[in-house]
Amino acid sequence: MILWTVMAATLVIAVNLPFLGQRVLERRVVFVDLAIAQVAATGYALGMATHLPGLFTAYALTAVAVLLMALMDEETPLPKEAVMGGVYAFAASAGIVLLSVLPHGEGQLMGLLFGSILGLDWVGVGKLAAFAAVGTALAWPIHTNTYGGRLRFYSGITIIIVPAIHALGVLLVFAYLVMPALSVWRNGRNGPEWQAVALAVGAGVVGVLIADIFGLPPSATVVLTLTCVAVLIGIVIYFTSSKKPQTVKKKTAPDDEGSEETSEKNETANIGK
């Protein structure tokens, strides 16, 4: 029973997160999930400290953060990762200060950020799958660098990342978000989506089975397996793509000014190698 819920939860994120990971990599906002998750955790802390429903305060605070983050144009001269790091540090500090007034605050903050895949039952897996489907539907489509496009992307990623980190822990979620997308990354561009998803699913199944057979912690074992598979596939892609370049045209919308032109330039450069 425990094995199957762990397997199902792993598959839910293995199917959804690589898509989002590719969008995250192309927007160069790798730490967005950590920043959003930390804002949500601080929202829960605010709820606990003020005796308001934690879920309500978490979503309210995260919504404010998303609205503000969407203001940041992708072509901003600001280093986006530094901004995300700043949001994370501010939210974490605010959460610690809020929870310091509660008796076992430190443990609660850790609990909010680091869930465990073992604690998820079938209802939890179902909820996670529903959130993941909605989040992916919002964040995956056409890459648009407008306020609306960015808002849709950040909202989508929030809808999937916040419950996923709360349920599964930051380790699994972060690994599944970046590793498959990074592994199939080629010539400075995102690789085929099916490769990222296939890699994630395969590594997830193998990792969960290894953890069960050898009695190891499932989250860490799955991440280790995913890392090994991702590195191997990445090396293979690196050597094969240098001989036979394969680039996937970045999904662009008409309002994403300049990006289509850049994509074409990159493609031409790759073909020329």
Partner: peptide, 13 residues
Amino acid sequence: GIEPSTRHLSNLI
């Protein structure tokens, strides 16, 4: 601080 294994929890059940 170390997550238990699926097998360990199944044994406990």
